[in-house]
Nucleic acid binder design. Structure first.
Ligand SMILES: [Mn+2]
Ligand SMILES: [Mn+2]
Ligand SMILES: [Zn+2]
Ligand SMILES: [Zn+2]
Lengths: 171, 171
DNA sequence: TCAATAATGATACTCAATCTCAATTTCAAT
DNA sequence: ATTGAAATTGAGATTGAGTATCATTATTGA
């Protein structure tokens, strides 16, 4: 028998925007983690890769690769699209970036870094992405995985619908 | 306080294959539901649309649009690809078909019809899709939705990893 | 230094899905 | 049955995100 308090279960994340107080130190530690991963793979932390990571740390929302590319170009116009895609993939591999499926079209990305795991509600009207977290949901998910004898690598739980604001505008 | 039995929580679906005993009657009822929806939209149930629905009822697994198209061509080689895509979309709109994201490449579809809602584990090795259901997971999901003031239209919960069989082959 | 390897950017390409459009079919009202 | 409007179709063009290619440049470590 599992007992649980209903109200302690679900956490909403206020926003994606709040940055660590010591931004420079944070950025440095992320750069270090990226470099460690790259070194382990026999790769180098180039200035292009640094720039792309830097842009992601400055983002205050989930961005498409194209949006990331736009930001990157502001810092260094010579960086190519292919490098942005390649670097996003590397950042995903080393666990610094997560992918969120958008409704259609291009995928969106967010800096995972040290943020706790969470899932997403996606407004089909305005594209706004809301974040939530429910440890109990994860618990039952683990139970399903265990029962199935599956080995989970990652998961996506995305709820599509209309956000509070878009509902108001409708009524 | 919510109380629940741990073992009663997660249901695995044995397979996608079991068909209703009275297949013809079932097919007829689905055709009726499709026709009702189409009529309501001022559209017609054409022989092409019927053929595509028929192929979906015969499928015993999740299929890509291209795979559905291949099946359709066996029944009527004159049917075009565009019509298959268009019809799948109509079937989704009227709730008879669900889309499952595959790892990469094309989406997969399954006949929803009267099957209970369930989510999916997707093997990144062999592409096998396993189905599971957890009412409690849905309950906490609803709680998150309520707290956020969101109106959910649909959701996708997909777990990527390695299935039991592919793990064996590895070891 | 210098050969081996990694990385880059431009661009060509892939592939699923959608769009266009002329031709055909269906519908409903006569 | 006739007929004009609307729906439907299939072929092929187009889109668009993401990837592959490749010649050039940068980095590495012996
Ligand atoms: Mn997020
Ligand atoms: Mn399924
Ligand atoms: Zn919204
Ligand atoms: Zn497998």
């Amino acid at each position: 028998m599992i007992r649980l308090r209903k109200d302690a279960e679900v956490t909403l994340f206020p926003s994606h925007a709040q940055k660590p107080a010591d931004f420079q130190h944070w950025l440095g530690s992320l750069r270090g983690r990226f470099e460690d991963y790259l070194t382990k793979q026999g790769l180098n932390l180039t200035k292009q890769r640094e720039t792309i990571l830097h842009c992601l740390t400055e983002a205050d929302q989930h961005l498409t690769a194209e949006q990331i590319y736009d930001q990157v170009k502001k810092k260094d116009a010579s960086i190519g699209r292919a490098t942005v895609f390649r670097t996003i993939k590397l950042l995903q591999e080393c666990g610094l970036v997560d992918e969120i499926a958008s409704l259609r079209g291009s995928a969106k990305f967010e800096l995972k870094a040290d943020r706790p795991h969470h899932d997403h509600m996606i407004c089909v009207e305005c594209g706004r992405i809301l974040e939530f977290q429910s440890p109990m949901m994860e618990k039952f998910q683990d139970e399903a995985i265990r029962k199935q004898g599956f080995t989970a690598l990652w998961h996506r739980h995305e709820i599509f619908g209309r956000c509070k604001l878009c509902q108001k505008q409708r009524s």
